[in-house]
Simulated assay, not measured.
Amino acid sequence: MSKKVEFRLSGAGGQGLILAGIILAEAALRDNKNAVQTQSYGPEARGGASKSEVIISDNDINYPKVRKSDVLLALTQAACDKYIDNLKDNGILIVDENVEIKYKNNINIYKYPILRTASEILGNKMVSNIVALGVINGITNAVSVDSLKKAILARVPRGTEELNKRAFEEGLSLVNNLK
């Protein structure tokens, strides 16, 4: 049986969600799966709406856009409000601890201190995207941990590899500690 998972990573510009989507897609390719990544963001470089979409499949991907997501990451309230209606029934909603879920039945909701972990534990809010990747993969196991680590280290700015490795591990441990 083939498996296809559609991800929508959303938040504000400057949170690194485009890079997170690229890393997730690259990890899938490293696992010999098919993947496609698309992105959009508002006119503001920082602070405007941002989303990255990734489709991972064992088979060919016929359409590169996410129609209804299986997994929605929302790091901001605005992103959650905007995209929650496009989450499939029984889909996975992953939100930062500050996001309020106002409605929506038949979804699996996971709330984690993603932004706080980046800023307070790691001392750098710029790695919240990598913390989020750890959380996403801890919940979904969409790609192998090894492939995701390799993709992270291949894509993050030089000199930040250790910080980003720790961010990924912190994201994974958020999920493991709350299972």
Rank of each mutant, 00 (worst) to 15 (best):
L17I: 14
I18Y: 01
N34G: 05
A27D: 03
S40Y: 09
A25N: 09
L24H: 14
K33D: 05
I22Y: 08
A12E: 12
S40E: 12
Y41W: 13
I23K: 08
A25R: 09
S40D: 09
A35Q: 06
L19K: 15
P43C: 11
G21L: 05
A28F: 13
G16W: 03
A28W: 12
T38N: 06
N34E: 14
G13V: 11
Q15Y: 07
L17S: 08
G11T: 07
G13H: 12
G14P: 05
S40R: 10
A28R: 10
Q39E: 15
S10L: 05
G16T: 00
T38A: 02
A27K: 03
A12P: 07
L19C: 12
A20C: 08
A12M: 05
K33L: 15
Y41K: 05
Q37S: 01
N34R: 13
Q15P: 00
A28M: 11
K33Q: 08
S40F: 11
A28Y: 14
Q39C: 07
R30A: 10
S40M: 13
R30D: 01
L17V: 09
S10E: 09
G42A: 13
D31G: 09
P43K: 15
G42L: 13
N32W: 08
Y41A: 04
V36Y: 03
A28Q: 11
A25D: 07
N32C: 09
I22M: 10
L19S: 14
A35N: 06
G16I: 00
A20T: 00
K33V: 03
Q39H: 13
G42W: 15
G21H: 07
I18N: 04
I23T: 04
G13W: 12
R30C: 00
V36W: 02
I22C: 03
G42N: 15
Q15V: 00
P43Q: 14
A25S: 15
D31F: 09
E26S: 03
V36Q: 04
L29G: 01
A35T: 13
A27R: 01
Q15C: 04
R30T: 04
S40L: 11
G42I: 11
G11N: 04
G16E: 04
A35G: 10
G42P: 10
D31P: 10
G21W: 09
N32Q: 12
A35M: 05
G21E: 08
